[in-house]
């Protein structure tokens, strides 16, 4: 029989939830305020005009576009490499396997500042100019593990005999991949890919180390905070970003419901 939590426990729960999510409510509230210099409480009035202003800001659009491109490319790289490493780790026994698991997790476990410095040093050594591709590579390092975790869990659950059955029935490697493996890991790829995308989309620290003068959306935010005017525009964009990152995560969770596949969701940095 399920126990009903005590009143105190329930109060504590809701207090915790309020503490976690109250700032989000504030962000939405100040996207609607009429006053544009200081965040006065309560807001003197409510308006929708900042939504219009935000849409006309070219620098915002450039930052948003860059962020989408970076996140898209980093996710693509993570999907390809993460799936390949998951397949290798599932299928083969070899020396140093545990070490590789650790290496995969490191970029997400290490503080972002270390990853950032390490990448910057490496790029300098390799004489790579900071730019779009250095940001993508930086993001891909910590995106791979989310795909890897999801896909390797799916492989373990599915078992290898389906692959053998497919080849037994006349399908070569390519067709087996196309007709059996890919359909069985499709939702794991989707979940891992969405998490990757969300991780990359709001990344600041690694980006600051690997970008030249490019501004991804989170960096654009940081810069905006120092502007004296039109502050609610930042809040409007923040509301958009919340939707862009929130919806895929909810979708990913829904797609992999009834499974315990959603790994690597939390990046500690």
């Amino acid at each position: 029989m399920p126990n009903k939590p005590s009143l105190g426990l329930r109060l504590a729960f809701w207090a915790g939830m309020l503490f976690l999510h109250f700032p989000i409510v504030i962000i939405v509230l100040y996207a609607l305020t009429t006053e544009d210099r200081t965040y006065r409480f309560p807001p003197p009035g409510l308006t929708l005009k900042w939504f219009g202003e935000a849409l006309e800001r070219q620098d915002m659009w450039r930052a948003l576009l860059l962020s989408l491109q970076v996140a898209g490319m980093a996710t693509f790289i993570a999907l390809v490499l993460g799936t390949m490493v998951a397949a290798a780790m599932y299928r083969f026994q070899f020396r140093g396997k545990d070490a590789i698991t650790l290496l995969l997790i490191l970029p997400i476990a290490l503080p972002g500042i270390l990853t950032g410095i390490a990448l910057l040093t490496t790029f300098k050594r390799l004489a790579l100019e900071p730019g779009f591709w250095t940001i993508v590579i930086g993001h891909a390092t910590f995106c791979i593990v989310t795909v890897y975790n999801n896909v390797v869990a799916r492989f373990r659950r599915t078992g290898y005999s389906q692959v053998e059955a497919s080849m037994d029935l006349g399908a070569d490697w390519f067709r087996t991949w196309r007709f059996v493996v890919l359909p069985s890991i499709a939702t794991a790829l989707l979940a891992g890919g969405m998490l990757s995308f969300a991780l990359s989309f709001d990344e600041v620290i690694v980006t600051t180390f690997t970008a030249a003068d490019q501004k991804t959306l989170p960096i654009w935010f940081l810069n905006e905070l120092f502007r004296p005017r039109e502050r609610p525009v930042t809040n409007v964009v923040a509301v958009f970003v919340m939707l862009i990152t929130f919806l895929p995560i909810v979708l990913a969770q829904w797609l992999t419901r009834d499974t315990d596949d959603l790994h690597g969701g939390g990046k500690t940095s």
Partner: peptide, 30 residues
């Protein structure tokens, strides 16, 4: 896939994302 031999696996190894008809027809499909 190059051997004229087929196998019934211990765990059956049916493809869960296909219905029974597509499972049975798999060898013909490929």
């Amino acid at each position: 896939y190059a051997r004229d031999v087929n196998t019934v696996f211990q765990d059956y190894a049916l493809f869960p994302h296909m219905n029974v008809r597509d499972n049975v027809a798999y060898a013909l499909m490929v």
